[in-house]
Design a protein around this nucleic acid. Sequence first.
DNA 1: TACTCGAGTGTTTTT
DNA 2: CACTCGAGTA
Length: 594
Amino acid sequence: MTEWSSNLNPTQFKAVTHRTGPLLVAAGPGTGKTRVLSYRIGHLIKTGDAKPDQMLAMTFTNQAAKEISERVFRLLNTELSSGCVNNGQKVPKISTFHGWALEFLKQTLQEAARLPIDEKDAKDICQEAAKKLRLSNTKPKVLQERVSRAKQYYPPRLTEDEDLTALIHVYHELLKKYGLWDYDDLLLEALRLFEHDEIREKFLRDFPFVLVDEFQDVSPVQYSLIKSMAKKNGNITVIGDPNQAIYGFRGASPEFMHYFKTDFEDVETVVLDTVYRCPQIFLDAATSLIKDRSAVRLKSVKDKTPKIRIKPFEDPVDEANWVARTIEQIVGGLSFVSLDSGTAGGNTLRSLSDVAVIFRAKVLGNPVAQALSKQGIPFQRADTPDPLAQKELRSIWRVWEILKGRNIQYHLLKLPGGKDLWNRKLFDLKPGFQDKDGPQLLSYIIDILDLDPNRPLLKALARAIKGNPHVNSLAVLLRNEADMLDINIEAVSLLSIHAAKGLEFPIVFLIGCESGIIPWKEADPEEERRLFYVGLTRASEEICLSHVKHRRLFGQMMHGGPSTLIADIPQNLLIKEKAKKTRVPQRPRQQRLF
DNA sequence: TACTCGAGTGTTTTT
DNA sequence: CACTCGAGTA
């Protein structure tokens, strides 16, 4: 315990050691949210207040669940070795909302539980439903989005739209026929189960300690779930930052943070306001954007407070080239702030992984990606497409699922070539597949799908499986491989602001700071402010906001001028730089290999 | 059933 | 611009 408290500041300590009853932790950017969450779990175990398997911690992403698990286990292991905790093999359940819901449904409904499908299959089924109804608009993507949007509410919010009502009805009939649930159903069905008193009572007995991460991002359904998961005076901890609520477009609302205080009884509120990440000026700029400047003033522990640089450019290519050149100089050993100003730079040696370029919409990353490749600077983008959207991989995955005995009927139906063919093909060979390992399964699948195993895509897949021979879910493996933005890799990161949430980088370029881009035209202006807030608080040392005069977006010329949000920041926190007339000649710095 | 081509359309994203 | 989707053709 003593070692623990030495790692925590007083407010963190208060949140970690809070004993019983509802707890709301308002945690600004870089205030040690994950630390508090994992320490709290560890602390509850250590004091004996909770048995490990009485705890459920819920996150939004697998990544977050993994991170927290790792920290908790690291914490407990250290404690274990010093003999403080007597650990049974029981462990706290740390899982995503959806992951927990699926398990809960399986456990409660047994064989009556259906099988989950991903978004792509949901689109297909939406389309099937729309065709049945002869709706005029049958775009699967649009339909699925509208259906999913409605299903963020319980009961699903059907508005006045009759088409949507009918569509959802038929869509649900189809899902029922196939024995499937979409992602939204997992949460909705879990919520439905909680309407049965005996089921809810059992849950309350099983999990008297519930913790929720990124609480500001909960949807109405998730909020209802949370309310069902604890008594009004129960041991429920929620942690989040209302100023970083940027998922309104999928039904989340920062309001739930306020509701929590009245929906539960005697809520203890702890505000984490000591920021370990950002310099004070970045924090002041960020908070100045938020309307109800909630009495909280974030305080940075950093002594250096560089100002925020504002850089104007003519067009996206200028902007991108400047970013690329500047990065090159940074990793060359010159400090960022002193560039252009003639001062000799500090000697901080930067690595490419210290740098992120972030932006409001993914397309804005393209010119930067081009400029970086031209300069031979390695970079990684977070926005890799879902690998399972690719045809071959999807077929491979379907056969894999069939051989693993999951969702067989539906996958047979969807495989190219048709059900009968595949029934025949798979029939003879199925026995004994339980024992085959990943690589064997894959080569078998490639064989019966008649694919060329030497294609780079399949070779990469084979490599991924080889590193993970006992993988059960190919989907999880593929998606992890694909969108894992590897922080340790020696490369610049290109990310949307959304994708950057939760991350930090010493040096951040926030590009495309123009009105119409951020704030995005026709978007909730308050949420746009929070987005900018998130963007500004990603940097731990230096940040530069840039804007251009003209930008071609979706084939249309935009000239919104510098973002109105920049004008809303107290100007003494900014250094505005003049546009440079001189266009630096393109020098090919590094020959590309091919 | 499988592929090509042109019209249409645009934020952000997890499960 | 760049991509997706679906109509149309083989």
